[in-house]
Nucleic acid binder design. Structure first.
Length: 218
DNA sequence: GGCCAGGACACCA
DNA sequence: TGGTGTCATGGC
């Protein structure tokens, strides 16, 4: 635990929280919907994911059993607006297939054990990478893991907190070792990063009118 | 009409 | 380990 770094991280959180909070993430009605959304949003605009979720609800497909039983072609058609529909339909199939194999299709059972062991096992499921895995653990399971995404890396690299080319685990560890282990804090922090970056941060530009660059003495 | 979006994975050197 | 190609829709 680096006290100076912790102070900086909490300062940044406070600036974001005062401006945007509370975010009340994840935008979903159930833990299972969080899992589905986490896979569908891979490299995809959230607006497109919402269209796919609407389709899944209309077709009665937003449950582990329904996803397991639906033909993959029909699933792909339903999630078409989210893009990569062939890839993502098979990833959803792989996830629920594993969920039934290991936990009888129950998220409650999945989350009931040691979450660090669950993380390692989830990461071995095809289509569940680090960000998707941590999103599921934090936002569907209320486990104290920090979610790192493109926004997080971009913002904290620009703030000089992490290296430009830092890998996922390095950034995640930086947050988790220098913040109190608090599910509510991790939940809100990541949501605030996304909320802020959607407004200010573009891929090949620096932030325009970004409060953090003015206010944080980093 | 080009760029981008809340990644993951296979393949390669 | 790091770099590159692939997967694809929809909004701006």
């Amino acid at each position: 635990m680096n006290k100076k770094l912790q102070k900086q991280l909490l300062e940044i959180f406070d600036i974001l929280a005062r401006r945007y909070g509370p975010m009340q993430w994840w935008p979903a009605e159930t833990p299972f919907e969080v899992c589905v959304g986490a896979i569908l949003t891979q490299n995809t605009n959230w607006g497109n994911v919402e269209k796919a979720i609407v389709n899944l609800k209309r077709e009665g497909l937003l449950s582990a059993k329904a996803l397991r039983d639906v033909p993959v072609e029909k699933l792909a058609e339903a999630i078409r607006p989210a893009g990569y529909y062939n890839v993502k339909s098979s990833r959803l199939k792989d996830f629920v297939g594993w969920l039934f194999e290991r936990f009888d299709g129950s998220l409650d059972r999945m989350f009931s054990g040691d979450w660090r062991e669950l993380r390692e096992e989830l990461l071995r499921v095809r289509g569940i990478g680090r960000e998707t895995c941590d999103s599921i653990l934090l936002y569907a399971g209320n486990k104290p893991t920090f979610v790192v995404d493109a926004y997080t890396k971009r913002l904290f690299a620009r703030l000089g907190v992490v290296a430009e080319n830092a890998d996922y685990e390095t950034v995640r560890t930086m947050f988790m070792e220098n913040l109190p282990e608090d599910v509510g804090l991790f939940n809100e922090y990541h949501a605030l990063i996304v909320g802020h970056c959607k407004e200010h941060c573009r891929k090949r530009e620096r932030c325009h009118g970004c409060d953090l660059h003015v206010t944080c003495a980093i």
